[in-house]
Nucleic acid binder design. Sequence first.
DNA 1: TTGTAAGCGTTATCAT
DNA 2: ATGATAACGCTTACAA
Lengths: 342, 342
Amino acid sequence: MTTIREIAAACNVSTATVSNILNGKAKASKETIELVRKTAQRLNYTPNYIAKNLKLKTSNTIGVIAEDMTVFNSPDIIDGITEYCEEHKYQILLTNLRLFQKFGDFYYTKNNLGQLINYEINELRSRQARAIIYVAPHVRDIKTVSSGLNLPIVMAYCTSPDPGVPSVLADDEDGFYRITKSVLKKGFRHPGLIAGKPGSYHTAERLKGFRRALLEFHFPFSEKFVYYGEWNRRTGCEGAAALMGKSVDSILCMSDIIAGGVYDWCHDQNITPGKDIPVTGFDNRELSAYLYPPLTTVNLPLKQIGRKSCEVADHMIADGENHRLEKQYLKIKCKVVNRTSL
Amino acid sequence: MTTIREIAAACNVSTATVSNILNGKAKASKETIELVRKTAQRLNYTPNYIAKNLKLKTSNTIGVIAEDMTVFNSPDIIDGITEYCEEHKYQILLTNLRLFQKFGDFYYTKNNLGQLINYEINELRSRQARAIIYVAPHVRDIKTVSSGLNLPIVMAYCTSPDPGVPSVLADDEDGFYRITKSVLKKGFRHPGLIAGKPGSYHTAERLKGFRRALLEFHFPFSEKFVYYGEWNRRTGCEGAAALMGKSVDSILCMSDIIAGGVYDWCHDQNITPGKDIPVTGFDNRELSAYLYPPLTTVNLPLKQIGRKSCEVADHMIADGENHRLEKQYLKIKCKVVNRTSL
DNA sequence: TTGTAAGCGTTATCAT
DNA sequence: ATGATAACGCTTACAA
């Protein structure tokens, strides 16, 4: 690798001059500028960022900690982050915790997670990351992440109990309100709801949206018509069985996967989803377009979440100590994707 | 951030001693070792890797260039890479080219791609990446990547025309051979094949596997029963229409997405896939389990591809100049996933 | 057993 | 306009 010293030698100037010229601080004559530029090109020079970073005690690196990048929402979030980074000349140092791969569904109950996260943050810091974006597959409080790290950190698709740490989220409440409204507008008055895990943020928010829509239409809400379960296919199957026994006229699911389970039950019972019973999902995963009939669902603004997270991180970097958070939670709206299951 | 100098000061020893102790080259008395360790801990010391790397002119960073990490196979490949990296203490510097996001289906015809790749490789090199893993969504020759870079590089799910650059691939030929055999074993003698794009590596290899199975069963092969198209849903739809007109007794698709199109056509015609006409896919994407009936398909060993790529890169790093490639192409076997569409 | 000092490639200060 | 030099935090001969 060519160094500025070699360029300096080749041009018969000092390294200081080379450095100045190559960094555009052109306190040099036209001729030397020309000469240095040419030789740098000729010798195929690329700056050694390691040296540069050491000297400047900073870098253009953003650390991304993904709890598990194989979970469906993570790649798109990271895509949004990379888009912003590309435009703003940041590099990404990726840490993939592989939590889901390692521990399956219950990874977030691991109690040494905090230790692990702290370790990785430190690791990233010692590599001069300017900021950290923490990407999770489900929204929940990550207790260990706080603003006391002296390093900008933003939570994508998750939260921190520390009000100084910003979060970028999907507006689950509004998203579910919208899809519920779609259902009610079509004249269905007795919707059943298959929810996810009871304690979950998503379950709570989406339920709120469901109730808000019901209220708006002056329809009563009853817990009788909501079935709680896990975020999986089987829950959809069981939920459909339970709810259909209570003569609901439509089924709203809190996830596409759950809706997949409802379809399973329908096939089993020789009932046609969409025709005999309208079904809706949430998340707009790829599979939702391949169910038959294609599932009406709600799109998650994952890429925007990633982009926005990175933008916030960038602002925090720029403002340094002076940064004041306007809002701890930034919620991005979701849109209904109309297909034929409703 | 605490530095070794501060530790040295606090302990009344030299930085050399601190460095030695902290790196386990313990040429020191038990007491100083103890003291230094304790103080390092107390001051919450983490080494500055930037400085370390500059001094050592090396790092434990592996650069990953993903053509587009939102394409379904990339996250799992990267997951395999991170698994290996985690075990072997490598860090990942991720470059997401976002080619598919930017240019859609025809990104690989971009003719300045070579320039871009070279730029990114250089970028990674100047950040002291020890090796580069290039991750693509479709197998094809990436012309610009060569072994003359003086930096180990391995191609994951793609190839380089340079025989000095190793590739890790799925064994498409064998995978398609296996699924074809599954079909033939069930007694179907007139399989139709819906292929992908004619020029593609995947199309060619999978076709070979198809023919090999046919040959083994002494069934004739005829181009009449293969329908070529794109790697999309519509092709499945059109292919099914074309093939069913030629009275095939089963349909093999070169991708799950194509199979999804076949299901579309079946629904349209009131034909039940699996029952009236067996259908198989390839790739084992999530959606394949949600089609009805669930699609029999072939699993792509993506994680292993990532892992193996990283392992090869690691060996190349370790061997340096002495590295001799045994094989340019490493092909990992695929397994049939039996469901009920066959 | 411990310390001194040079050097990795760069930038920045201060002379010239 | 250009150059000499110190410094960023670390490792490693080599000296003590």
